[in-house]
Design a protein around this nucleic acid. Structure first.
Lengths: 181, 181
DNA sequence: TACGTCATATAACGGTTTGATATATAATTT
DNA sequence: AAATTATATATCAAACCGTTATATGACGTA
């Protein structure tokens, strides 16, 4: 799924500027499973507008750049709907935390402990962020999606709490092995 | 975390060719949280070799291209360890499935059902793939990481089974709304 | 006075996708 | 049985897509 479809999808929920699309994708109710950058959004919007998929309304403001508010057109809606019919691609997931855990025998027990503590507070933060988003949103699709994200987050937290001792042991074992050599 | 560090990390587990690094990252025990492409791996290995971070042993074969087997050097190991000390970046997660669910009111009940069925079999497939990887691997870090992935996968399956009716209702509601208009 | 928010935009960089090249073996179709 | 197609091994480059970093600038807040 490319940014083109992503912009159309967000605009299908309501008019927005490039700035707002960015915020929705990295902080709003889309943020759990999407993250687009300005460098991709602005050129995509320009092209979508040239092709008539979205229309533009300029709101001039004093001291600030002109707000360029985009709306999806009937043509754009059709392209968007057509794109929804293709089979969804597999999820993409990248985690530097898991990579670090995989290499835990190269870390000191102290480092491992710090990383795990950081992970748990990161997950708690994500979790409460999703709770917040869920409260301010009664759209059914959003409820389902945020609920999914929350379930993942809670499962991760539970796993971390149940298995942190095992992970911390890796660092301690390595020290003993090195001492024995 | 860039491919450079990723290649060093995989080579720190043992010698490998570019081809094998790719397989490990998209099918092996790293695949749950990493995925690198040939187009990134080969240039990275070439550069790493030029810089003395990895050494090269060529194995000539009949009919096939020469196998270029890389090993991490002491210098490479030092760079790798140094890179493990930085705070892990937040996870990156992208899901076309969740995007589709977010837009469920634009889909027919039939489409939603098909997407959910596909999702459940995808998750089951991922889950059994992880079980398989876990069995063939008694390295502690791998156990922790695969266990994490498995926990996520099972939580996703449970959520899907508990909430599929809710999601399927979205499509049916939309039809009724449209009929009423 | 420095940082966070609003707002658009581009250049440099990094990584993915696609496809070229080449052979052997396994599976499927005719 | 023969022919075709898919899969696995193995490296690599070009085209394309998206991220990161940065420029610009004003307003509000700590």
């Amino acid at each position: 799924m490319n940014i083109r479809t992503l912009c159309l999808g967000i605009l299908n929920f309501g008019d927005a500027t490039g700035y707002e699309i960015k915020k929705l994708s990295s902080e709003g109710r889309f943020s759990y499973y999407i993250d687009a950058s300005y460098g991709a959004i602005y050129p995509a919007l320009t092209r979508l507008h040239e092709e008539g998929m979205i229309s533009l309304r300029e709101e001039h403001q004093e001291g600030k750049p002109t707000r360029k508010v985009y709306s999806i057109t009937e043509e754009g809606r059709q392209e968007f709907i057509a794109n929804l019919s293709v089979d969804p691609a597999p999820d993409k997931f990248k985690s530097q935390f898991l990579f670090l855990m995989m290499c835990a025998e190269n870390l000191t027990p102290d480092q491992i402990k710090k990383i795990i503590d950081g992970r748990i507070s990161y997950l708690k933060c994500e979790c409460s962020h999703m709770d917040e988003v869920r409260e301010h949103c009664d759209h059914a699709g959003s409820q389902f999606v945020i609920g999914y994200g929350r379930a993942m987050c809670q499962a991760a937290l539970k796993y971390m709490e149940d298995n942190r001792e095992f992970a911390e042991q890796i660092g301690k074992d390595t020290i003993n092995v090195e001492a024995a050599e």
